[in-house]
Amino acid sequence: MAIPDALPFINLRWDDLLFIILSVVLVGSGLLVVTLRDIIRCGLAMMVCFAALAGLYALVGAPLVAAAQVLVYIGAISVLVLFAIMLTQTKAAPARLVFQTQALPAAIAAAVLGLLIALTVGATNWNAVAAPIRTGTAILARVLFDQFVLPFEIVSVLLLAAVIGGIFLAKREEDGPA
């Protein structure tokens, strides 16, 4: 038996359904990241958020970026963040002091910003096509190492510099008053 193109009864396409689910997860976990009191949970919510994004990338036809998203954001950055949290959150760290005093104005500003972006997006003609186009991996590799070879090399230099400096800053010194 073939799976129908669209969800029965409400006539919602499968990929639309997936989009809605992923969006809800994305926005929900994003909100949790910035509002939760326990910073470790914030970190975990961030991982969920990244995962939802990876799903969206796959849905819109960029599987390689989705894979990279999982590897880099979930595999590396989130782990690094969690690691830093573990290292710095001693019992003394007061979890109740989550927000600045001006959290409310910040919330209003952010809401206005979001609304503004949404309105602008709605008011703009993007010359977009009706359906997402898939990006093949082979052509991507070709473009990356041909057209974008300079940015690619620079990014590696950037990572090198970051790692060298990062190690210097983060390493504990034997003799210093660490």
Binding site: V27, V34, V98, F99, Q102, A110, A111
Partner: peptide
Amino acid sequence: SIGTFGFLARR
């Protein structure tokens, strides 16, 4: 916007 809020509001 969520990120902006977090940046502005968190301590």
